[in-house]
């Protein structure tokens, strides 16, 4: 394995903590959103897919201590990290509109893969609000698979678009000197801003 970038090692714990805290703040503010993958996606965008996936994996393992079912959904958070790294390489996070569209990609992982896990492990009826909605959909005639897919995709779309917007603004606020030290920083550095800033210095 290629030696990991020195700064990446220290950003992974931060990403994990931000996933945690983001989710907690969302709960405290009683938001109908998860907002618990901001760290995964940001680290993926800054450092690449593997570090992003690590953030996701460790987050779910840590959460599993107090909420063990999260271990079943570890693949989602790993997927978010990998996708963030891939999209970042393609320069998607440089433009807000592209970032928002990317939200659909994350929602498909979250909702699609998520509902598959729910169906495989929990017969489609997970322990949560989406499980409730799935149940409701079943009583009006949907199959359990369709019900789980619809409810989880919807919940994830609602979550991932704001999440991605937040990630976009976080990335935009990171100073160039920090970005310069990160594996994918060179993609994210906004050359107009750099030249503007140095003109100001000169």
């Amino acid at each position: 394995m290629k030696k990991m970038n020195k700064l990446t090692i220290f950003l992974i714990p931060i990403g994990i903590a931000v996933n945690f805290i983001g989710g907690q703040i969302a709960l405290l503010l009683k938001l109908p959103l998860y907002l618990d993958s901001i760290g995964t996606i940001t680290v993926g965008a800054l450092c690449g897919g593997i570090p992003g996936a690590l953030v996701g994996a460790i987050t779910n393992v840590s959460i599993s201590v107090t909420n063990p079912t999260s271990l079943a959904y570890i693949w989602l958070n790993i997927g978010f990290g990998l996708l963030a790294g891939y999209l970042s390489k393609k320069g998607v996070f440089k433009k807000l509109w592209k970032t928002v569209i990317a939200g659909f990609g994350f929602a498909i992982i979250g909702g699609g893969v998520g509902s598959m896990i729910t169906i495989l492990l929990f017969d489609g009826l997970g322990a949560g609000t989406t499980g409730m909605i799935t149940g409701m959909l079943m009583t009006i005639g949907f199959s359990v698979q369709a019900g789980a897919f619809i409810s989880e995709l919807f919940a994830d779309l609602l979550d991932k678009i704001p999440t991605l917007i937040i990630v976009f603004f976080i990335l935009k606020s990171i100073p160039v000197r920090t970005l310069a030290k990160l594996p994918l920083g060179h993609v994210l550095i906004d050359m107009d801003k750099v030249q503007g800033a140095s003109r100001k210095v000169a």
Partner: peptide, 9 residues
């Protein structure tokens, strides 16, 4: 002499 990356001065 030393120049940080992405800076001019």
């Amino acid at each position: 002499s030393y120049k940080y990356p992405y800076t001019e001065g």
